[in-house]
């Protein structure tokens, strides 16, 4: 399985993503510079955290106009798994690949610590290796992780079971304690917490590894089905 890690100017979790896929999971991974227009040949796409374009205008807004985001739309339509973490989540929202927006944290503080997440939906290609309702410890590191959407969108998210992760103790004011959501089709996941920083015991938690394992297991299954 080959992962693409998209690198924007200002990405700073790209190497964490790369090592999670390559070393912790044991899959193939390559960096893809944001000016490349093609995402052909990758089985999954990772959008790392960081501060693309210095968070100018709005987090992820400038990055969402880059050439590679057009390819990202094509891959999303095609069903390629796409995971956006932190700034990657912000870029997915600004690109319209996921609904809603992220606001400043309720208490205006940059938050950097482990949070307990609840796996609300384990029927996705990103979470099948978790139990439903399982509590996992994943680090957060963000100033603008306060998920917001209008009541109509929220009702749709609930009806379609698109809320994948929630915070046990909401740290940032997100509506319905939302920490991560998928698109309706289920192949695009955006989340503020960093599973790539929780893939080895030495990092303080291995709870994020099952997310990458889920992607690998589901890719293998789809590969067998399509062969």
């Amino acid at each position: 399985m080959k992962f693409a890690v998209i690198v924007f100017p200002g990405s700073n979790c790209d190497r964490d993503m790369y090592y999670a896929a390559k070393d912790a999971l044991g899959a193939e991974a390559e960096f893809v510079w944001y000016q490349n227009s093609s995402l052909e040949g990758y089985d999954a796409i990772l959008l790392p955290g960081g501060f693309s374009y210095g968070d100018y205008l709005r987090c992820g807004a400038i990055a969402s106009t880059s050439e590679i985001v057009k390819s990202l739309h094509r891959e999303a339509d095609r069903g390629t798994p796409i995971l956006g973490v932190c700034n990657g989540f912000q870029i997915l929202l600004e690109s319209g690949l996921l609904p809603g927006a992220l606001l400043r944290n309720k208490a205006l503080k940059f938050l950097c610590h482990h949070e307990n997440l609840v796996v609300r939906n384990n029927q996705t290609l990103f979470t099948s290796e978790y139990e439903k309702g399982q509590m996992i410890s994943i680090p957060i590191a963000h100033g603008e992780g306060n998920y917001f959407c209008d009541p109509t969108t929220l009702a749709q998210l609930k009806a379609n079971n698109q809320i994948v992760f929630t915070y046990q103790n909401n740290p940032n004011g997100s509506v319905e304690d939302i920490a991560g959501i998928v698109n309706e089709k289920g192949n695009v996941l955006g989340m503020m917490p960093h599973p790539e920083r929780a893939t080895e015991a030495i990092l303080g938690s291995e709870d994020g590894l099952n997310l990458f394992k889920s992607m690998l297991v589901n890719w293998r299954e789809s590969y067998v089905t399509n062969a």
Binding site: L57, R58, T65, G100, A101, L103
Partner: peptide, 9 residues
């Protein structure tokens, strides 16, 4: 519509 404002918020 495309960039300067985010119509969600």
């Amino acid at each position: 519509q495309k960039l300067l404002a985010n119509p969600v918020i």
